[in-house]
């Protein structure tokens, strides 16, 4: 899922400063699952904003609406009535949601309440970690299902750098060295010889470096 985190309140307040009516909109997708921008988080943020404006003795109206997914047009369009009423749309969706609302409502001023961080997984309740670099050409079959593109701090494709120590990355002792993980797993699986192959330079044109990407399925189109 796409993992995001709320921006500092100070920044959010700056983004909506001066608006008399704000539409605070959540998303029922990834950000609900990892509790960053679903219905409950919308309630909490709305409450915090009301507390702030009450404290400042400034009137503000906060409309709240959480849609099933902010990344699909039919759900985003459900926001139409409230978008019309609001001076600012504050989205608690990921970066996709913010853009998609803006895209669907050309006249709306849409701002993000979250910082979108990565494509990741839930390690345990309350802990999420990055797992996919969205590089467009998966090489996980070469590395035992552990991605060096995103999990190695330097995206090295041919083994660990000299900063790998005791299984940890030099960048942060909290980070596992991806190549230690890859090495250990390949060894356990009896496939260490695969790591002796020299992995050639990656084709980054399949990734974001090739320009914004699009996927089309003719059979799915109307």
């Amino acid at each position: 899922m796409i993992v995001a985190e709320r921006k500092p309140l100070e920044e959010i307040l700056r983004l909506i400063d001066g608006a008399k009516t704000v539409l605070l909109t959540g998303c029922g997708g990834c950000v609900t699952v990892h509790m960053a921008g679903g219905e409950k988080e919308v309630e909490v943020l709305a409450s915090l904003l009301r507390l702030h404006y009450k404290k400042e003795d400034k009137p503000i109206k906060i409309l709240t609406q959480t849609v099933t997914r902010q990344c699909e047009p039919e759900y985003v369009r459900e926001l139409a009535d409230n978008v019309d009423k609001a001076a600012v749309v504050l989205s608690m969706g990921c970066g996709v949601g913010v853009q998609f609302i803006a895209e669907n409502f050309p006249k709306a001023w849409v701002v993000p309440a979250l910082n979108t961080k990565f494509a990741g997984a839930t390690l345990e309740a309350g802990v999420w970690a990055e797992r996919c670099g969205l590089c467009g050409e998966c090489i996980l079959y070469k590395t035992g299902g552990i991605c060096p593109v995103i999990r190695c701090s330097k995206s090295l494709l041919n083994g660990p750098c000299g900063g790998s120590q005791n299984g940890k990355c030099e960048v942060d002792p909290e980070i596992d060295c991806a190549w230690q993980l890859i090495h250990d797993r390949m060894k356990d699986l009896g496939k260490l010889d695969l790591l002796l192959e020299i992995e050639p330079p990656k084709d980054w044109s399949k990734a974001r470096d090739g320009g914004p990407r699009k996927v089309m399925r003719e059979d799915m189109r109307f």
Binding site: K40, E43, V44, S47, L48, R50, L51, K54
Partner: peptide
Amino acid sequence: VNPQMLLKAFE
């Protein structure tokens, strides 16, 4: 107890 409930009391 959840955050919404606690904040609501302050509100």
